[in-house]
Nucleic acid binder design. Structure first.
Length: 809
RNA sequence: GCGAGAGUGGCGGAAUUGGCAGACGCGCUAGACUUAGGAUCUAGUUCCGUAAGGAGUGUGGGUUCGAGUCCCACCUCUCGCACCA
């Protein structure tokens, strides 16, 4: 039943393909006409569900709309094809990751085509193929040359049961996501990208991103975590060692009553060696480290132990005890904290527990140090020459004074860590590095790229890269001295692959270079990037970083890759995110079978504000299906129009047509309010049905129908193409201009005024447009006179062409 | 704990940014057409009330002729970060 969507959709998908409607000649496009519309490319695991579909449907609606606005729209698609799931599937199903991945790609590609998403498939890229990862390796070499890729020992998550390294995302509450064994930390030599060198620019340039959601920018800002403070050195009594502490509250320096270091502090061994109660301290440290592994980040009670040693506060020579505490972390600052219990809640709690002194140095009348620390500003006390000063001023003066005396220095700290890109895994781009006994670390020369990922490999999870066991891969010769050498066997994090793919789309088949700088400068930044908010931090931060590096190296002429960012919400089913394991996945293919791709597309756009999560409702899909049938049946309705033509009805319809064009255009240009755009189109269709027997003039009906088809086109392209053709138009409609509204039709000649008495609606009056204030007042009073009896009208408020409010007493 | 966002019918959600609360859709009710209806069409559908009318946008206060919208306090939920010194 219903309109013949199956035939129609196949027909037009073939036409679009055959006529190469979505293929773009990037070289000949003038810069001012280009529009780069990009959706985050998928990781090809199994099939796409309707939650994924939302991304592509929104992207397609935007692309088609921009086309109709006269832009040359580049909308490419590719595959983020390296990564763990392929490897896990390989281990589980005895299938090569490459075969598994390529099979999924072909499946997903046919899904996307069946939904009528228009891509320039000539530009398809696949990150796991050598013609792509060759250039990911090139990127690594460029970072290495620039000193932005380096190697150091770092802790990794290790599952002793699976015998493998885990990514942070695979660690759930301190345990392995697969077998729930508590995760351990292991020290391994790892490659890093020095993203911290770019911390300040990544922070500053957030200001350039006017068209990014504020939320995403804020998440990035917090992730970068800049804080300004002072580093100050506390000499350890009886030693040359100085304990350096970072603080943002140097104004409280006179209130320091102890110094506390992390259990894995860099000089912990030296401290232990000197400590009179070293056995107890060592025991404490072991215990805390064990707990940390077990609870991984869980907030425990603050506890600590005194080392029995003392450090000297340089500003007043005061001797304060040195403690080890579980609430200090090595990863931030220096791993040592100057504790001021009076003005830091954590130190306060710790001091109370261990009876350490609490000295007030910033006074405020509301402070009650017997209850909690006072962390706000105030007036300096107990602080020598700074007494009486406002603490904010004192912060600067004390910092100056400390710098003058050489006790410390101002310092900016970031929370952002360097990007660990090594993976002890098979299914990734090999890191193009060779180790030579004589020459040390030698980068693979550019002309030797790609370093091919060997095909036949044992995927034994050992915690070491499987590549380590492939002798023909490992054994090579040093490119510098020709002596026998070994290859790096780690592969790169897949986020490296996806940090530059948007550049590759511009010249995807170039064998000589990763991308064409001239064309890339014409086509980028991406005009509209669309994807899930789950990438708000990592992918988007890495892409911004890589773009800035390439800018510094002179390869691109812009510092930010994505001009506008839109993050769409998730689609929820039965209150939960769709996933195979929960069994709540809605397959688009089954829907298409019953209702066609256009119904699925329209429902996804109608489901709610696209940036918000939305609950899937099978029944509501049927509502959209009914609507599309009503639209389709307008063709027949037109044929069945009688002879009667009422110009007044025509006027009403035309007014609605133009107000609908205005509304839909505003929704498309604004924050993509597809849901309200669709409902306004529904209103237009409803109006035509309501008035169908009242003498809609034929020409008006046809005008309405044409506008309707054009407005719906970005959402339901197949149906619209077919209807357009059936009323004698010529497709494909992407090339047809978007309709414009004529304000002339929106003018009212009769205005309905709302009449309020004391703010409550009591009636309404219709008056010709341009009625004078007196006329409006008089009619309004007449309309609601029964509410005015015995009362005095004290004030009359008139909102032009809208409302009259009579204030009575 | 900190930061951000959100609370509107039975449900998803609208509301030109201070001016008719509940558009549009789902669901529901009644009816029409039908051998049939989980198809289609028509009418209705915030709540209380037979009605006139009254109440109503998480709670309490405030500003205003007028508040879903602005201000203050609080409650709940979602997301992000989390002993960041």
């Amino acid at each position: 039943m219903g309109y013949p969507f199956g035939e129609i959709e196949r027909k037009w998908q073939r036409r679009w393909d055959a006529e190469r409607v979505f293929n773009v000649d990037v070289a000949s496009t003038p810069k001012e006409k280009k529009y780069y519309s990009l959706v985050m490319f998928p990781y090809p695991s199994a099939e796409l569900h309707v939650g994924h579909a939302r991304n592509y449907v929104i992207g397609d609606a935007v692309s088609r709309y921009k086309r109709m606005r006269g832009f040359v729209v580049l909308s490419p698609m590719g595959w983020d094809a390296f990564g763990l799931p392929a490897e896990n599937a390989a281990i589980k199903h005895q299938i090569h990751p490459k075969d598994w991945t390529l099979r999924n790609i072909s499946r997903i590609k046919s899904q996307l085509k069946s939904w009528g998403i228009g891509y320039d498939w000539d530009r398809e890229i696949t990150t796991c193929l050598p013609d792509y990862y060759k250039w990911t390796q090139w990127l690594f070499l460029k970072l290495y040359e620039k000193g932005l890729a380096y190697k150091k020992k770092a802790a990794v998550n290790w599952c002793p049961s699976c015998n493998t390294v885990l990514a942070n995302e695979q660690v759930i509450d301190g345990a392995c996501e697969r077998c729930s064994t508590p995760v351990q930390q292991r020290e391994l030599e790892q490659w890093f990208f020095k993203i911290t060198d770019y911390a300040q620019r990544l922070l500053d340039d957030l200001e350039l991103l006017e068209h990014w959601p504020a939320r995403v920018k804020l998440m990035q800002k917090n992730w970068i975590g800049r804080s300004e403070g002072v580093e100050i050195e506390f000499p350890l009594e009886g030693s040359d060692l100085r304990i350096t502490c970072f603080t943002t509250r140097i104004d409280t320096i006179f209130g320091v009553t102890y110094v506390v270091v992390a259990p894995d502090y860099q000089y912990i061994d030296e401290i232990l060696a000197m400590s009179p109660n070293r056995n107890a301290v060592r025991e404490f440290i072991d215990e805390v480290l064990r707990e940390r592994h077990r609870d991984r980040g869980a907030v425990a009670d603050k506890k600590g132990i005194s080392t029995g040693l003392f450090v000297i506060n340089p500003v007043n020579g005061r001797r304060v005890p040195l403690w080890v505490g579980n609430y200090v972390v090595t990863e931030y600052g220096t791993g040592a904290v100057m504790a001021v219990p009076a003005h830091d809640q954590r130190d306060w709690e710790f001091a109370r527990r261990y009876n350490l002194e609490i000295i007030e140095v910033v006074h405020h009348d509301e402070a009650d140090l017997s209850q909690s620390a006072w962390e706000d500003s105030g007036i300096m006390v107990n602080s020598a020459q700074f007494n009486g000063m406002d603490s904010e001023t004192a912060k600067e003066r004390i910092a100056d004074w400390i710098e003058e005396n050489g006790w410390g220095r101002r310092k900016v700290n970031y929370r952002l860590r360097d990007w660990l890109i090594s993976r002890q895994r098979y299914w990734g781009a090999p890191i193009p590095i060779i180790y030579c006994d004589k020459c040390g670390i030698v980068p693979v020369p550019e002309e030797d790229l790609p370093v091919l990922l060997p095909d036949v490999v044992e995927f034994r999870p050992t915690g070491e890269s499987p590549l380590r066991y492939v002798e023909e891969f490992v054994n090579t010769t040093c490119p510098r001295c020709g002596a026998p050498a070994r290859r790096e066997t780690d592969t790169m994090d897949t986020f490296v692959d996806s940090s530059w793919y948007y550049l590759r789309y511009i010249s995807p088949h170039d064998e000589d270079k990763p991308f064409d700088s001239e064309l890339v400068d014409k086509w980028l930044p991406v005009d509209q990037y669309i994807g899930g908010v789950e990438h708000a931090i990592l992918h988007l931060m890495y892409s911004r970083f890589i773009t800035k590096v390439l800018y510094d190296l002179g390869y691109v002429g812009f510092v930010e890759p994505f001009e506008r960012l839109f993050t769409q919400g998730m689609i929820i089913k039965d209150g939960a995110k769709m996933s195979k394991s929960k069994g709540n996945v809605v397959s688009p293919d089954a829907l298409i079978e019953r209702f066609g791709a256009d119904t699925m597309r329209l429902y996804i756009l109608f489901i709610g504000p696209p940036d918000k999560d939305a609950e899937w409702n099978d029944r509501a899909v049927e509502g959209v299906w009914r609507f599309l049938n009503r639209v389709w049946n307008l063709l027949q309705l037109y044929e069945d129009l009688g002879e009667k033509e009422d110009p007044e009805v025509g006027r009403i319809i035309l007014k609605k047509v133009h107000s609908t064009i205005k509304k839909v255009t505003a929704d498309m240009e604004g924050d993509f309010h597809f849901n309200t755009a669709v409902s306004s189109i529904m209103e237009l269709v409803n109006l035509i049905y309501e008035r169908r027997d009242q003498g809609i003039p034929k020409d008006v009906f046809m005008t309405a129908l044409k506008s309707l088809i054009l407005l719906l086109y970005p959402f339901v392209p197949h149906t619209c193409e077919e209807m357009w053709e059936r009323i004698g138009g010529k497709g494909p409609l992407v090339n047809h201009p978007w309709p414009e509204y004529d304000p002339e039709y929106l003018k009212e000649d009769v205005i309905e005024w709302v009449v309020q008495v004391n703010g409550k609606v009591r009636g309404r009056v219709k008056l010709p447009a341009g009625a004078s204030r007196e006329e409006v007042e008089t009619s309004a009073k007449e309309e609601v006179k029964r509410y005015l009896e015995g009362k005095e009208v004290r004030k009359v408020i008139v909102v032009p062409n809208k409302l009259v409010n009579l204030v009575v007493s």
